[in-house]
């Protein structure tokens, strides 16, 4: 299956990644060749196969419902590119 420039633009939008129009051509080509490669899987009949959703053969273990951290506000904010004392700051979302 091929993937056209409009589809690439849509995927970029969904991925929240800005895309330079000059790169559209080569990117569509790359993505098409990767999709073409993975489509080999269609040779296989998997109608009766269950999908493998976890490679670890275990059920999640519940833990005691106790607070085991907290009070690390400063550590959490430390790496933010824009913050004040208590909050992450983002560009205005409400006019």
């Amino acid at each position: 299956m091929s993937i056209d420039k409009n589809q690439v633009k849509k995927v970029a939008k969904l991925s929240r990644i800005s895309l330079d129009d000059t790169k559209l051509e080569s990117l569509s080509k790359d993505l098409a060749s990767i999709l073409n490669f993975v489509e080999q899987l269609n040779e296989l009949d998997t109608k009766k196969t269950e999908p493998l959703t976890s490679i670890v053969d275990k059920t999640l273990e519940p833990r005691a419902d106790k607070i085991n951290d907290g009070k690390i506000k400063n550590e959490i904010l430390k790496n933010s590119p824009d913050k004040n004392e208590d909050f992450f700051i983002v560009p205005k979302v409400i006019e």
């Binding site: 899987l41 269609n42 998997t46 196969t49 269950e50 999908p51 493998l52 959703t53 490679i55």
Partner: peptide, 14 residues
């Protein structure tokens, strides 16, 4: 067509 299919083939490989 892609993701679910791949998970199924992953089972065959395992």
């Amino acid at each position: 067509a892609y993701y679910l299919k791949a998970q199924k083939v992953r089972r065959l490989i395992k």
